[in-house]
């Protein structure tokens, strides 16, 4: 009898306490933290976009989302995520860097590119030349970059996604000019590399080298980075030269699903990337000199970009995995022609 009474009392207390806990836990708005691990020149884009998304999410869910940004060379950032940087989303310079995270760390599903439209690339860009005002070396196209005495600034393809786009754009130009002769393309890029005095690890570092340290005659730059430099430092100091041929760069985005699940941020992380495709997201991309995918925003910002013939990585190099293996993996073509 004594035992039964005790058990009943304890069970009653437990039920009451449980009910009290549930009752006293109102459906409070949550404070959510999200880490976006991105590549070098997206600082300004995501600073503006994060504010817009946080506002949108607050209105939609009442939750407060704070997005932290991490920037660096795209390849370097991918390695950091593999090594444990707790990214909820990655917004990198090229698909291969996300493939590496999927392959090596299994943090992202292998079919990540199918999760969002346009192969999970909400905006595009290309590679252009930034030269000093008056273009003292008369740089017009890729051929001018291999002339003796022309100093070319580009980051290191081993660590920078932008640098890999630069390299491949130069290679594609050389192929197109030399009837797809790979040997001549190799020779062309080797000469270009010879003209590079400093190897920064990321695109933003290369911009610093060219713009602030005043090194070099031409900066091979992301289109958005070049326009941003002109906007920030003035048209009286720099000019943009659009080459006759360049490459269509499709910076991709993905939710780091395993990490987001662990952090309990899956829903907001997915919404964060989806919102890049919204009218507002596309407009912010255009405003920051990325080429929007949506027709409306693309039309709105079309006049700020010069026309250029764009080749794609798939048609010239057979996709990123092949390009990476041939050119940038250890012992690849870049290692063969790079003589520090």
């Amino acid at each position: 009898m004594k035992t039964k009474t005790l058990i009943s009392s304890v069970a009653g207390v437990a039920v009451l306490v449980t009910a009290a806990v549930i009752a006293l836990q109102p459906a409070q708005a949550k404070d959510i933290k999200l880490l976006n691990v991105s590549y070098d020149p997206t600082r300004e884009l995501y600073t503006e976009y994060n504010t817009a998304f946080a506002k949108y999410w607050k209105e939609k869910t009442k939750d407060t989302v704070t997005i932290q940004q991490s920037h660096g060379g795209s390849g370097k950032q991918a390695r950091s995520v593999i090594d444990g940087l707790p990214a909820d989303v990655v917004t990198l310079a090229l698909a291969y860097d996300i493939d590496v995270i999927a392959d090596k760390a299994r943090l992202i599903p292998a079919d990540w590119q199918k999760k969002l439209s346009n192969n999970s690339s909400p905006y595009t860009s290309t590679i252009v030349f930034l030269v000093r005002k008056g273009n003292p070396k008369g740089i017009k196209d890729w051929d001018d970059l291999i002339k003796p005495g022309v100093s070319v600034v580009t980051p290191n393809p081993k660590t920078s996604g932008g640098a890999r786009w630069n390299y491949l754009a130069a290679w594609a130009y050389a192929l197109s000019k030399n009837n797809n002769d790979e040997a001549k393309a190799k020779d062309f890029v080797a000469k270009l590399i010879k003209n590079v005095p400093v190897w920064d690890s990321g695109a933003r570092g290369a911009t610093t080298t060219f713009v602030q340290r005043e090194i070099g005659d031409v900066l091979l730059a992301w289109e958005n980075e070049a326009y941003l430099a002109v906007k920030e430092f003035g048209k009286d100091k720099f000019e943009i030269v659009t080459p006759s041929l360049s490459i269509l760069a499709e910076p991709p985005v993905a939710v780091v699903e395993k990490a987001a699940k662990k952090h309990g941020t899956e829903e907001v992380a997915k919404a964060y990337l989806e919102y890049l495709y919204s009218d507002e997201g596309q407009d912010i991309a255009g405003k920051n000199f990325y080429r929007p995918r949506a027709e409306k925003a693309a039309a709105k910002y079309a006049s700020q970009f010069s026309p250029v013939k764009l080749i794609t990585i798939d048609e010239v190099f057979g996709g990123w995995r092949k390009a990476q293996k041939t050119h940038f993996d250890d012992g690849g073509v870049f290692d063969q022609i790079f003589k520090p």
């Binding site: 100093s151 005095p197 400093v198 080298t209 340290r213 005043e214 090194i215 070099g216």
Partner: peptide, 8 residues
């Protein structure tokens, strides 16, 4: 330029 490169 050489000095700048060395410094960088």
């Amino acid at each position: 330029q050489k000095v700048r490169v060395l410094e960088r």
